[in-house]
Design a protein around this nucleic acid. Structure first.
Length: 257
DNA sequence: ATGCCGTGGAAACCACGA
């Protein structure tokens, strides 16, 4: 079974690219981020025609997350991250599909740092860590995936020294990710490829993709009950080279049945 | 060192992204 995550940077503007990628790679489950569409503007019919049933949490202009499934309709568990009733951003959606619990997330960017946006990022991270602890306590197979907006280590940044003050790479951000993983999660890509340079995002400008000036910020975290089923993982880099593409590439894992 | 590009929404520019 293949599960993918893809920050589309606008689900409607990206629809031709999204549909082509779904057709060519046929993942079983897909988590999308940055829909940039209100609830009623999600292209449900096009997704259905492509063979996927979907749940989504939209928002006007920004954010927005979805879970697509080729089989059964994802059974929605929650559509907000617990811990802050004031938080109106659509950045989290959680569902169960065939006995697997999947949390699809779009962690705040946090720039400029320091500042209120960085404070929001760290608070959101704290809420995620608290919720993730509860997910582990279920002792079920659980997957947390999406755009974490964190480069976990220097290996995940093309030029680490120029990112040390950035919200995606500051010590507080990396420490939060490390704290999350230390609960018992397996970082799928890094576990299968401990020493390789693997990126999931390249800026639109400065010729970043051609220079391979990238970042690894889209991640898969597997609970202990799920980790033994990890068979393969990768990045669909070619999609980043298509016309009218997102600045992120799709990332995927293969699970043994 | 830098939003230089791209998206969406409102308005013919701005917010936001990483």
């Amino acid at each position: 079974m293949r599960i993918a995550t893809y920050n589309v940077n606008g689900v409607n503007g990206r629809l031709p690219v999204l549909l082509r990628w779904l057709e060519e790679t046929a993942p079983d489950i897909v988590c999308l981020q940055e829909l940039k569409a209100p609830e009623e503007k999600f292209p449900e019919q096009a997704i259905l025609d492509a063979g996927y049933k979907a749940i989504w949490h939209g928002q006007k202009s920004w954010n927005g997350v979805a879970i697509l499934s080729r089989g059964e309709l994802p059974r929605e568990i929650r559509r907000i991250l617990p811990g802050d009733p004031e938080d109106a951003h659509s950045r989290y959606i959680e569902a169960e599909i065939n006995g697997l619990t999947i949390g699809g997330l779009y962690l705040p960017n946090g720039n400029p740092a320091p500042g209120p946006k960085f404070d929001y990022k760290l608070r959101w991270f704290d809420r995620l860590i608290a919720h993730a602890e509860g997910l582990l306590a279920t002792e079920k197979p659980v997957l947390l995936t999406g755009d974490f907006n964190v480069m976990p280590t220097e290996l995940d940044v093309y030029k680490p020294e120029s990112w040390v003050d950035d919200a995606l790479f500051r010590p507080e951000t990396r420490a939060a990710f490390a704290q999350l993983v230390a609960q018992g999660w397996t970082d799928a890509i890094r576990t299968l490829y401990p020493d390789e340079t693997i990126y999931t995002f390249w800026d639109y400008f400065r010729n970043a993709f051609a220079r391979n000036a990238g970042l690894r910020i889209d991640h898969f975290l597997l609970s202990p009950q799920l980790a033994p089923r990890l068979a393969a993982a990768g990045v669909d880099r070619q999609v980043r080279g298509w016309e009218k593409t997102s600045d992120h590439a799709p990332v995927w894992i293969e699970l043994k049945d």
